[in-house]
Design a protein around this nucleic acid. Sequence first.
DNA 1: AAAAGACCCAACCGCGGCCGT
DNA 2: AACGGCCGCGGTTGGGTCTTT
Length: 429
Amino acid sequence: MGRSPCCEKTGLKKGPWTPEEDQKLIAFIEKHGHGSWRALPAKAGLRRCGKSCRLRWSNYLRPDIKRGKFSLQEEQTIIQLHALLGNRWSAIASHLPKRTDNEIKNYWNTHLKKRLDKMGIDPTTHKPKNESLAYSKDGSNLGHMAQWESARLEAEARLVRESKLQEQQNNLGPMSSPSSTQITRLVLNKITPLQQKQHSLPPCLDVLKAWQSSWSNNNNNINKYSSLNDKKKTMHVRSMYAMMLSNDDLESPTSTLCFPESVQMNNNNNNSNAMVSTNHLGLINENYLLPPTTLDEFIITKSLGTTSSEGAIETVNGGGSDSWRYFTKHNNEEEQVETDEKTIMYDTISCLQDDDGDIMVAVEALRGAGYYDDDNNSNNNNVTFTHLSSNVNNMVGFENDFDSNEDLAAVNLHVNFEENKDYWNGMLN
DNA sequence: AAAAGACCCAACCGCGGCCGT
DNA sequence: AACGGCCGCGGTTGGGTCTTT
């Protein structure tokens, strides 16, 4: 069946919208709503086709659109969702409040895709490039498998919702019945056998395995760097996936995707190697995602030997809107910290604040964990938090033998875990 | 300083699904 | 069931801006 054009092409304007046209469109929609897009242009006095008006409104003029730089969290979400969903921009956009599918698509094509590409990750399959080639040689149909995986994940989400509902209806607690996740897995295992840990990650998610491999290969050497810079150089080649791989909690509550045990956090382990490794994951996350060459800096310094129980987070308006760009440490790198349970250190974090006032992840982390005290917010953008080190130590499960630099990394690590939990919960609700 | 190339992103195009008739 | 209108979606384009030579 042929398809008629959406509107008469003759006499209608195309191309960039003028401010006057925008105003006409906004004024009309605010007064009447958009109703039928086809009929709208004539009523609004615009020489545009309805489709052009719809696009202009939904991609640009809508009041609930957030414009400007994508945050770290948004970047993470896009990459994670793209690995799961592929180029389903509207689906991805539904998990990024106030962002349009068009904007996400553009950002992917112009930034994230290239960044993955430079790292040797195939942005289509999210697999390391050499592995992608090998995989193709198997004759596998990647697109088909990704589609299958995507459909399977959606089915998982649906099933867990249903099982949650069932649980509620039956009024049964988790102790008296299998958890919803367990139920989901039982059901799904009949559809797709549970993936063997580490050995057979879903094809479209094999990037996780790649990063796990990257992490594992260097994990044993994490304490052998001669300087922080050396550590950083190595850390730059890794990604947020390391963070995901580092904690079982980050596993999708519904997915059969499994993360390797070798890099899981062991909160009961006071061994310093384990502690350092875990904390470095937080730094890896920050360092990788934030490009190494930028104008703005997120600086961590530390003060040592104090018994103060207070610290300070200072926000600095340093580089305009281009914040969240770099994460590094300086000063005091060689200093060792001796602590006992009663010795509290404090750290000063200098960080940037973006234009719309969002404070960076670390600050949100502290606030979320109760370390950020709005009442103590001073006039010059200084905010304080209390009881940092001891509580952070407890927060991440380490009771002894910690280093304050690593503690701050742990804060970031912790909050990212929480954010990922929220993310997956959001996927399900 | 100028030209060429690269980059970016708003806007367009056309397909396909949904729904009413 | 067939048709037609509407809208959402993903791919692509074109022109403005920035960077490099």
